[in-house]
Design a protein around this nucleic acid. Structure first.
Lengths: 343, 343
DNA sequence: TCGCAATTCCAAAGCGCTTTGGATGCAACT
DNA sequence: AGTTGCATCCAAAGCGCTTTGGAATTGCGA
């Protein structure tokens, strides 16, 4: 069923039917009702493609998923983020289109999206320090919102981010208050902006108490379980091992816990662990009492919120770039305790 | 830059330029070269929308992600599956469009996709027993491929699945060969087809050795870490606790390990664990030596393969429904060992 | 020199929608 | 009665592409 057929069935012109369905004022209320009923009855839905062609809008938002070329890794938060954003798009009549791209193709993918007029805007995932995509998207004139931020970017841009620096500063302070002075950091890759900021927070807190930064207990890589495990195992064999660890993700925290327990130590007593927790649906941090003390911020909620911002920007390109900074919540769980006394 | 502008720049008609770009034979090789060069120079890319309108194809494949309405959970394998499929689509010039839908909206989402002519085909995620979507998609005439299968479906359909029954039968046999007779099952939700089949495999293996099925050591729910933990903790307090566990996912296996260690037991000695492993990029089962003995099958490879099947089906609707059954690999790791002797 | 087929190109229609620029009818004013 | 102003509706153009049904040009044999 298309517009033409529907309008014939109703004995009206396509113009009138189109207007009735799109809420224009120049159509009689009775007529509109008749049209709407018929549309529902025949399951009429305008073709997104045709509508897009006619209006010059794509009625779609693009998500370009970076695939780390080294580890071919997909960010595990991605599913939940999409779930949040998807709801918003659907409510506004937008499609969500996905592309995957490793570092090498990235620019071509964005350019292609623009040239094919496939999307009205994109969300930039996994921003790096001084991310080149910000310049690129400005250049090709494609509206975008960054999930995260990019330190060093000179152009203005819209973003939604968690206050990673503050979260990790606070988490480090929490450990310091418990008497820990040897605090290890198991971070994500530090060319990623979020990891860079977390490291900053960690550093600031330590220096604030006059504790020197020790690279021997700072690791940075893809946030896998194995990485958390190996880093922890290594650090625990040091002469002066950490009594507390800060992990960048629940997954690497699970690895850290494995190493702690394998070493015959008890988490929360011998070694305290704090992790960031994206509140993923399939990886909850325990039930009522959190397994890990954690800085929590729902990535799903972030997805929903970011989608709203992008749609607003698409609707009105002159709108000022919106910036949203979410604070992470510090959830105290069973993985932290006072620093063990040195005997 | 659009077709009209490009053809004017070249002094050719739109017809000729279009044909040159799409590889039709009725255009001089020299002309074609000239056109291709100009297209590259001006970064011309035909509008997907317009092309779709003209050809009657959407040039897009839909993925409808079921969001469990109870737990609002997104399947964690989703990201990797998409990464695999995305490559294939991109190579064939297709877009991937995503929708999320909880159980209540599901039918409307598929119907909407069809009515809006937004996609040429869809992949069905997370099939349940006798899944109603198979009937629905047949009815509305939207090509599809199921990731998994649906026991009880009467209509024929294309699918790609892991041989879950065989994998779990083999895993159970492996444990039986090690002398285990009390083997617990920590399964996914059993209205999901994959979980149902895994349970079948488990049951068949046990009955094959004359061991009775004991519901007290069989659990089934969303495959979270917490579920793995709680199930294991509960089972270990039984009078006759299991000496081995079969987990449906690496995530719940991590929870199972936590419970085992918390009980002061050693994995691989006191309690053996085998898990299914989807070979997710962010959750590798160890490095060289697997952490867990596991039945492994890459969900990413499955995504790539399934996309090929769907595109073939879209290209030729008369094609027979393709069915692909992948065998999982049994990787022996450090989580399994001979059954502890009863003293 | 002409005719014919093959080669190479083009004008225009059509895909399903929106939107511009009227047309029509009717009540309310002069 | 003639005009005006609304309220409704419509025909047709246009979005950027593909594709049908020719048209022009060329090469070649008769």
């Amino acid at each position: 069923m298309n517009l033409k057929q529907l309008s014939q069935k109703l004995g009206l012109s396509q113009t009138t039917v189109s207007r009735a369905l799109n809420g224009y004022p120049e159509v009689n209320e009775a007529t509109r009702l008749r049209v709407e009923r018929a549309a529902a009855q025949y399951h009429y839905r305008p073709s997104t493609r045709a509508k897009g062609l006619a209006t010059g809008k794509a009625l779609a938002i693009g998500h370009v998923i970076p695939i780390s070329s080294k580890h071919e890794m997909v960010n595990p938060v991605f599913g939940d983020f999409i779930a949040g954003a998807g709801d918003t798009y659907a409510r506004h009549g937008y499609e969500m289109i996905l592309c995957t791209a490793d570092d090498a193709q990235e620019e071509q993918v964005y350019r292609g999206l623009k040239a094919r007029r496939a999307v009205d805007g994109v969300v930039v995932h996994g921003p790096r320090l001084d991310d080149s995509r910000i310049r690129l998207l400005h250049e090709i004139g494609l509206p975008f919102v960054v999930h995260g931020r990019s330190s060093g970017a000179t152009l203005p841009y819209a973003w939604l981010d968690v206050n990673n620096r503050h979260a990790f500063q606070r988490a480090t302070d929490f450990l310091l208050d418990l008497g820990h002075t040897r605090i290890g950091l198991i971070n994500g890759m530090e060319f990623m902006d979020f990891a860079h900021r977390r490291r900053d927070g960690y550093t600031i807190a330590l220096l604030g108490r006059g504790i020197p930064i020790d690279p021997a207990i700072m690791r940075s890589s893809e946030m896998t379980e194995v990485f958390g495990y190996q880093s922890t195992r290594d650090m625990l064999t040091l002469d002066n091992p950490p009594t507390a660890l800060l992990c960048a993700s629940l997954i690497s925290a699970l690895g850290a816990r494995r190493a702690v327990e394998e070493a015959g130590l008890v988490m929360g007593r011998d070694v305290s662990i704090i992790t960031h927790d994206d509140d993923l649906s399939y990886l909850k941090n325990g039930d009522d009492i959190p397994i890990f003390t954690a800085t929590r911020s729902s990535v799903r909620a972030a997805g929903a919120r970011l989608a709203e911002i992008l749609l607003a920007a698409v609707a009105d390109p002159d709108l000022a770039h919106q910036n949203v900074l979410l604070e992470a919540e510090l959830m105290v769980g069973r993985s932290t305790g006072p620093a063990p006394r040195k005997d």
